[in-house]
Write a protein that binds this DNA or RNA. Structure first.
Length: 284
DNA sequence: AACTGCGCCAACCGCGTTACA
DNA sequence: TTGTAACGCGGTTGGCGCAGT
């Protein structure tokens, strides 16, 4: 279904914003708050379409916007999350306070993409350290099913559907944890086939536990990634392979820093996960 | 000094998803 | 249940500035 333009283009300004326009928009939002973008330009007296106003506010005028060079730490996070999430710029931006999705997208396209793809020594070393060095803090070698970054979802969803009754969450969690300790895994490839509705389902439910559920969308996608693309596979001394769930046992098998996990998932929930930080899954 | 090519990044565009009448 | 308004996302565009010639 096609959509009408958000506003008639006739008589509207386009292109770069002037300082005067910025001031009008900033003052208006300061007084009236964000939202109702479609009608905002008319009410504020701006000759812009609502979309343009929203974009200008979100990417440039917001008071919490951090402008200036991307730091090395931020770059590291971008590379790490892009490896996990693909072009989910808004999710990546959500992990970088003060940075916008547009800024990160631009930075990736102009600085990081080429370096990563051309094995630039700097970014290559970052990726190597993050994804392949088993001795790195909080990380281990992980198994990737293919070379391309995991594609999760490409389009926006809103957060509001993620709000879940807290008691239901707790009940579901209790149910799943009671069952989970007896899981036995033969290999990672077979896992999702042999254990439908158990481990994967648990992870799906785990992804909904955070009470401030606006981040649940992140977790849902993270869960999708873990379900489909990323598994920790460790070679044991006896030749057997040990399968680790990257989400649940980050210290031995996950592609995440511990602190990143703790940020993503309520610490209270983490403490209830059996053998968190160790070998949650039994293996053969 | 003038021209050209290129990179950066703000802004635009199309469209998927959600909310709501 | 359906249609549409509104929102938000990722991809793309185009203007500007800078470096090289």
């Amino acid at each position: 279904m096609g959509r009408n333009p958000c506003c008639t283009k006739v008589g509207l300004n386009r292109g770069a914003w002037t300082a005067a326009e910025d001031k009008i928009l900033r003052d208006y939002i300061k007084f009236h708050g964000e939202g109702r973008w479609r009608t905002l330009p008319k009410r504020a007296g701006l000759k812009r379409c609502g979309k343009s106003c929203r974009l200008r506010w979100l990417n440039y005028l917001r008071p919490d916007i951090k402008r200036g060079n991307i730091t090395w730490d931020e770059e590291e996070v971008i590379i790490r999350l892009h490896k996990l999430l693909g072009n989910r710029w808004s999710l990546i931006a959500g992990r970088l306070p003060g940075r916008t999705d547009n800024e990160i997208k631009n930075y990736w396209n102009t600085n990081l993409r080429r370096r990563v793809h051309q094995n630039d020594p700097k970014s290559a070393s970052i990726c190597d350290n993050l994804l392949e060095n088993p001795n790195s803090k909080g990380k281990m070698k992980i198994g990737l099913k293919n070379e391309s970054p995991p594609v999760v979802r490409t389009k926006a969803t809103r957060c509001s559907k993620s709000f879940i009754d807290q008691q239901d969450i707790q009940n579901e969690f209790n149910k799943k944890t009671d069952n989970s300790s007896s899981l036995v895994v033969k290999d990672s490839a077979d896992f999702s086939r042999t254990q439908p509705g158990s481990h994967n389902e648990f992870k799906q439910n785990l992804s909904s536990f955070r009470p401030d559920a606006c981040l649940d969308d992140d977790l849902l996608n993270l869960s999708n990634v873990l379900n489909s693309e990323l598994w920790g596979v460790q070679e044991l001394s006896d030749g057997n392979k040990k399968v680790n769930n990257g989400l649940l046992s980050p210290s031995s098998g996950g592609p995440f820093y511990d602190e990143m996990l703790e940020d993503w998932i309520d610490p209270h929930i983490l403490t209830q996960i059996p053998d968190f930080g160790g070998d949650w899954l039994a293996n053969v």
